[in-house]
């Protein structure tokens, strides 16, 4: 589902002495099927931007178009519900929003709220719980008896059960251990590819942005700062450092190596595998042992 943001401005507490400009004249097109990573300094406007995409915040100026729905400043509430059905958000620490007696009821809540039958919602709950890598036995447990990592997966299943066309992930791996983090991110990438979704990932991890996204948006002080493919964005280390960000660790390493050898390194992707391959090219054919 194509998304178009035109001249979006957002003021918190407009018209009061506490007014603060959180977004300023942001324009952006995200074509259907894109996996976009949004990165930026804390307070750069990332969270404010994504909250507009499912109508949690309304624009002070400008428009947001998702598919054939347009939300404008002063628009009607009715449109917001339609928007929320299309755009699912997994918030930071989504496990804090779990509330129901059992995992099954919790996951079923979303789809039933949007008018699905109990049967369909139950089927969705079963499918999604397996999809996020949990055994079906947890469906009958209280979500509060699960570990933090499991609760996170349940919350993600609840969003997926609404079958959104656009999935927004607001730092979805915060607090997870390295393995859980990789599993969850791999899950999102797989879902993205299989379900033909448009995915928007807000992250503070340059590594996740580099490995998983097709496009990267860098926000700074409520405006778009850079936008492009990962290879373009991560070729601009100085610009990134100027706004509190950096390049992923693989690029950091290649830059260090390049400094030693004085020769540019050819890299094809940001994976550790490709980094090792690029460096091994400096060691002649057949390799070395020392």
């Amino acid at each position: 589902m194509d998304i178009k943001i035109s001249g979006l401005t957002h003021r918190y507490k407009a018209g009061t002495p506490f007014e603060r400009l959180a977004l300023h004249d942001v324009s952006l097109s995200i074509s259907s099927g894109t996996f976009l990573a949004v990165i930026g300094h804390t307070g750069s406007g990332k969270s404010t931007l994504i909250q507009h995409l499912n109508g949690l915040l309304k624009p002070s100026e400008g428009t947001i178009t998702v598919g054939d729905l347009t939300i404008a400043a002063g628009g009607k509430k009715k449109q917001l519900k339609a928007l929320r059905k299309r755009v699912g958000i997994v918030f930071q620490y989504p496990e804090h929003q779990l509330f129901d007696e059992t995992v099954e009821k919790d996951v079923m809540f979303g789809p039933m709220n949007f008018g699905q039958s109990e049967e369909a919602a139950r089927a969705a709950a079963h499918e999604m719980i397996k999809l996020v890598g949990l055994p079906v036995e947890v469906l009958q447990k209280s979500p509060f008896d699960l570990s933090g990592g499991q609760m996170r997966r349940v919350a993600i299943a609840g969003v997926l059960a609404m079958e959104p066309d656009v999935l927004i992930l607001d730092e979805p791996t915060a607090g997870l251990d390295p393995r859980g983090r990789k599993e969850i991110m791999d899950l999102f990438r797989t879902l993205h590819d299989q379900r033909n979704m448009t995915t928007i990932l807000v992250t503070h991890s340059m590594e996740d942005a580099a490995y998983y996204a097709d496009r990267i948006l860098v926000m700074e002080k409520g405006s778009t700062y850079l936008e492009g493919a990962p290879a373009e964005i991560f070729a601009k280390r100085e610009e990134l450092q100027a706004v509190g960000l950096d390049v992923p660790e693989t690029v950091q390493f290649l830059l260090r190596w390049q400094e030693k050898t004085g020769k540019p390194v050819q890299m094809s992707s940001f994976t550790i595998e490709d980094t090792a391959k690029a460096i091994s090219a400096d060691f002649g054919k057949g390799g070395f042992t020392c």
């Binding site: 390295p178 393995r179 990789k182 550790i272 980094t275 390799g287 020392c290």
Partner: peptide, 22 residues
Amino acid sequence: GLDLPFSLKLGLALRDYGVSLK
């Protein structure tokens, strides 16, 4: 249930490409 730090992972990957450090 953990991962390896970056430099260790890269060291192992380098070994796969024939660059073996002691």
